[in-house]
Write a protein that binds this DNA or RNA. Structure first.
Lengths: 146, 146
DNA sequence: ACGAAATAGTGGACAAAGTCAACTAAATTT
DNA sequence: AAATTTAGTTGACTTTGTCCACTATTTCGT
């Protein structure tokens, strides 16, 4: 890794930070915050997670998470069920209402992306996705502990 | 753009959001916030910007920016000089202290990146950078207004 | 088996980040 | 010359996020 590599990566970070901002814009007009949606995503895609499982996936302060989950429960988006095995742990699950809310956000997100990239041809999209997965592969390799 | 493309892009966003978090980690232990560093970056790389110029570059609320700049001035990181031409506008410039502070952060950021990607060979870095710039080119094309 | 240490989650108090609307002053439009 | 727009500031506020101390379990070391 030389100085040029580093500069290119930094430029990309600045650039892509803006892109992510654009892609998250639909959330600003929803009733949820970014971390809330990110948490819903995890709960939607994994059955029976605990708060700790969520923390393992996304970098979030546990007390902040606790508060968000409390809010979810209050609004009937999730059920909290004590895990039988470990009495400290609590199993979380989206209610039908919670699932529906997430799906609405999810659809909006898809639409946002489709709009943002509408100028690209199918061929260009293929190219984009190919590069994207190449990057992920490289980065994951470098991030592997040990 | 089809459903598969969209899913891949979203997965990349989630992934890369975490990467950005890792890359910004050094800022958490500095005396500055992320937006502050981002603003310093702009001031470092462009001479004689106004607050409006900064807003054109980064998406930030003008009153929030105003407060940050006020803090910078208080800590002698910038000079504010009324622009001769337009008496409403104020030219901003990093002081030597401001430049030095930014350079320190900048070095830390370089180091952070180098550490994060240390497992990649030079060849892999070349590959990474090539893909990165390809992505930027595609996205910029799609984002062009009109 | 028993005490010490670790883990799961919560709650209070607080700090940081960011927004909104109202405002002054200068510049531009009509 | 009045009306509108633009540059920037300020007060009051909300949202977002962190820190620390705490309870209740569970696991570890001996």
């Amino acid at each position: 890794m030389n100085a040029k590599h580093i500069q290119e990566i930094r430029a990309f970070n600045r650039f892509y930070t803006n892109i992510i901002g654009l892609l998250d814009r639909h959330i600003l007009h929803s009733n949820y915050s970014l971390p809330e949606v990110r948490i819903m995503f995890e709960l939607y895609h994994n059955r029976g997670m605990t708060a700790s499982d969520i923390i393992a996936q996304i970098d979030i302060d546990k007390s902040y998470l606790s508060r968000i989950l409390k809010g979810f429960e209050k609004n009937k988006l999730i059920n909290k069920v004590s895990s039988g095995i470990d009495k400290r742990a609590i199993m979380l699950q989206l209610t039908p209402k919670g699932k529906k809310e997430f799906e609405t956000l999810d659809k909006a997100s898809e639409k946002q992306i489709a709009t943002l990239f509408e100028k690209l041809s199918d061929k260009e999209c293929d190219e984009l996705v190919k590069k994207i997965s190449g990057i992920q592969k490289l980065l994951k390799k470098s991030l592997q502990n040990e």
